[in-house]
Design a protein around this nucleic acid. Sequence first.
DNA 1: CCCTTTAATAGTCCACCTGACACTAAATGG
DNA 2: CCATTTAGTGTCAGGTGGACTATTAAAGGG
Lengths: 240, 240
Amino acid sequence: MQGYDKYAYEPFAVTVDLAVFTIREGRLHALLVERGEQPYAGRRALPGGFVQPDEAAETAARRELAEETGLSDVAGLHLEQLRTYSEPDRDPRMRVVSVAFTALVPDAPEARAGSDAARADWLPYGEHRPSYAPLAFDHDRILADAHERVGAKLEYTGLATAFCPPEFTLGELRQVYQAVWGAELDPANFRRKVLATPGLVEAVPGAARLTGGRGKPAALYRAGGATALHPPLLRPEGRP
Amino acid sequence: MQGYDKYAYEPFAVTVDLAVFTIREGRLHALLVERGEQPYAGRRALPGGFVQPDEAAETAARRELAEETGLSDVAGLHLEQLRTYSEPDRDPRMRVVSVAFTALVPDAPEARAGSDAARADWLPYGEHRPSYAPLAFDHDRILADAHERVGAKLEYTGLATAFCPPEFTLGELRQVYQAVWGAELDPANFRRKVLATPGLVEAVPGAARLTGGRGKPAALYRAGGATALHPPLLRPEGRP
DNA sequence: CCCTTTAATAGTCCACCTGACACTAAATGG
DNA sequence: CCATTTAGTGTCAGGTGGACTATTAAAGGG
């Protein structure tokens, strides 16, 4: 790092890309925009945008998240850096280094198109290659990396509650795990493990109960303060 | 992302910073350089440098790693992206976005000073605040983040073998866990768990044995192909 | 050369975690 | 009223993991 000279090197553009997930009807969905311009016009892509000269990448990501989702309380959403993608040819026009973030949204208000996107929608993301694939740029890879990261973090952190509203039932929490992992979980064993993990959830004291559909009404819980889970909640083996 | 214009935005300098760890005499060490110039002249810092216009951050990181460590077989070393640090004021001179990497080195040849550093040394990194603290820029935080990441990945990946030479004893492997976690592990139980984890290590078939110091000679093992550990090898509880 | 020290390896015991599964409770829809 | 659905409780067998003891095989010192 001998003497810096801001013009000694080709300038890099720095952007953020957002892999935003939510659970809808028990299935995992990702927020995707439709590109309105070349390259990849008409193709689906991750929402994102440029980092401004005076803001950190995290700030830019949260700003873009607010713009694209139309959510009001963006401050409370879970936003986490995933990794940075810097291959020289990832954007055909110029050198773009992109810091990717993962965001988790509890309920899912309809998305709205941002300034630079033709449209924005919540589209199902799962095992099968979706009809809208492939995404623009290297966004398929980013989204897959984000999915893998979220799946892994469910095991050993209390992250799952970030997909849930402030008060939720254990059934809803279990659906989060099932949607992300793509696996069935035994309701009884899930309840036992969640309640045995200190700080994961705490019961809402009032006899508060929620009726959603059929079946016996369930007790409500709030997210506990726990960030690390000991022991972890491991996903079932073998995913070939 | 409406039409790019590479001069529409203030240019960002993109650098890589390296948190390089090794095990020496059973203790965790980090590779640190001494800065020769302002700002922070004379202070310790992480090795690193600029990303060139035609290379990915990973490529730049591996190039810097080779330059700073003097290792010949840099290609085989474990190098992994940590995260990107982009706070606008993290470098007092200009806007620098830095992609941080974690590298793990098995044996530790003496470091050598790179082009931009007065010197480079392996310095112990552990519980106590070391005498060389604080580091330049936000490098204390980067190094702490890297340590936490490595400690966590030892639990559920076969990463520990990256600290070991191609053939190693279970005692050496256990020392890796102990040095990174700063905790004592029962040798017998460690052996049982490691050998019970499929794909973590594989025995060297010949009656190969290694003599290092006192005690019964140990059997040699090679790193197995396993990348994910099921079940994980959890570190002991409670770190207040 | 013997004896102590050190580390690897083997084995045991027991508490607890976990998956599988049965059973009851409370709501809805025909 | 009855079948269905989901919540919640309980049980049981097998496996895992921590604590601990014992044995083996080398090095080093007197």
